[in-house]
Structures are given as structure tokens and as C-alpha cells.
Design a protein around this nucleic acid. Structure first.
Lengths: 123, 123
DNA sequence: CATATTCATCGTATTTTTACGATAGAGAAG
DNA sequence: CTTCTCTATCGTAAAAATACGATGAATATG
């Protein structure tokens, strides 16, 4: 398996330097994410499920739709779809507005733009 | 909770039209993702864990490093870090090359570029 | 007012993920 | 050759995610 991976030779000098440093420094274990990176990771998690990705795509193609529309189109029970919608809501990727007995969902374009910008800057 | 969500008024005409259509069409439940979207979702899932996001960020800042470097910096056991590295490898986001007893890891820039392009096109 | 519809939430079973100690293999070092 | 280092994998316990039926709240319909 490793044999098929691209070559990425280790710089021996770097290795030597690293060992020298490690003898002096303490193991800190304090490498943390910024708040933005944390939030980005949460959004990624929300999008990291095929059903939720499907919902996002559906909302792109159908900018105004209600829960039932999405339920009709996915191979999942209504309760499950509702749960996925909640995850996307909590991640800030979509917003829902109650309209009578229905709930109208749409993409939260502000968050989506933020997400795209963050991904653009990430790597 | 719903009260704080942005307003997204449902178009009554659309609702009416939808009902009319639904009377004619069958419930298909065949809304699927493309292969690209499926793969994108898997990458999102891989990035949807703070530890793995930390690893990616560390690899950005330290383009050449070995497993031990990452273990030193994260508050996780070596076995756990190795498991996260495997997830990132399986997602194609990083690649590892065995160098003696160590394994050198680096970002897979090809996949990263693909990921960024897909996110750019997604919404 | 009685009934239909729409949907979020609850409770719960199942599956998956996460984390870690232990282990083993593959080199390097002495 | 023996020992030490580095790391992937295994087994497993605990936590989280996923899926669904049942329920209830809110509203529309007759």
C-alpha cells in the first residue's frame, strides 16, 4: 500500500535538527486550532455525510423548498431527514422559516460564502 | 430557536405548483450524488474532526514531518494519531513515505487542489 | 369543532467513530 | 547479534452518529 504512494523523501538534515531540538524542548502538546478553523471543521463534519450533501445540492437546485420536498427525494424516513436538517442548521449552512404547518428551507449564503473563503485560505 | 433564523418567506405560488406536480408524479426517491460529490463528502468527513484538521494545518506549516512530530504536538496517543493519519491517507489528502523506521508525511497537493476546486463549484 | 397535514422532537436500537494499551515488524545503533 | 526507535495494526471499551417509529404541537381544512 505504501509502495503506491508518491515519493516524499525526508530531509535528513531536518531529522537531525529535530532530534537536537527535542532534547532541549519539553513536549508541549498545545497545538490548537483557531476559532475559525474549529468552526470550519464543524461545517466540514456537517457536509461529511452523503445525505446532508444531497440536501445541500437539492437546496442549490431548488432554492425554496419545504421539508417534505426533501423527504420525498431522499431514501430516508422523515424523522431522519429532520435530524439531518438540524445538523445543517446548527452548522449554520441552511436556515428554516416556519410557514404555516410547513418549514421553508434555504441555503444560508452568508455562511456558504464564508465557508468557501475559508477553504480557499486553508491550504 | 426558529425565531432567530433569517426570514425566508415561502412563495405561495410555488407551494401551489408543487402540490399540483406531486399529484401527477410518483415519489421517486432517486436523488443521488455524482461520484465527485460523493468523494467530496468523504474528504469533508475526513476534515470534519478537529484532530485531523490540526494535522492538516501542521502539515501546511511543516511541509516535511514524521509521525512522531505530529504525535508530540497533539494531545492524543500515538495509536490514535496513526489512526487519524490513516483516515487522511484514505481520503487522499496526505501521503506518507516510509523512510527507515520513520514515515514522512506531506499534503497531497493534487487532491487539495481538487478539493478546493470542488468546493468552489459546489454552491 | 373535528380532522388532515406538516414537521420537530423523543426514545431507542444499531452502527460507526474515537481513543488507547499492547504488540509486532522494520530498520537503526551500539 | 542485541537493543532501541518508530510506527502501523489489533483488540476493545466508551462515546457519538445514524435511522426509525411514535408522539405532540401548530396550523390548515372541512
Amino acid at each position: 500500500m505504501s509502495a503506491t504512494l508518491p515519493i516524499c523523501p525526508l530531509d535528513k538534515k531536518y531529522l537531525y535538527r529535530k532530534i537536537t531540538i527535542m532534547e532541549q524542548e519539553q513536549t508541549l502538546k498545545t497545538y490548537t486550532l483557531t476559532d475559525d478553523e474549529q468552526r470550519l471543521s464543524e461545517m466540514m463534519k456537517a457536509l461529511g455525510h452523503p445525505a446532508r450533501m444531497q440536501i445541500i445540492r437539492y437546496l442549490m437546485e431548488h432554492p425554496q423548498c419545504i421539508t417534505g420536498d426533501i423527504v420525498d427525494v431522499l431514501p430516508l424516513a422523515q424523522a431522519t431527514v429532520s435530524q439531518h436538517l438540524k445538523v445543517l442548521r446548527d452548522a449554520g449552512l441552511i436556515c428554516g422559516t416556519i410557514e404555516g404547518t410547513a418549514t421553508c428551507y434555504c441555503l444560508c449564503y452568508e455562511s456558504v460564502d464564508w465557508f468557501k473563503a475559508q477553504v480557499g485560505n486553508l491550504f
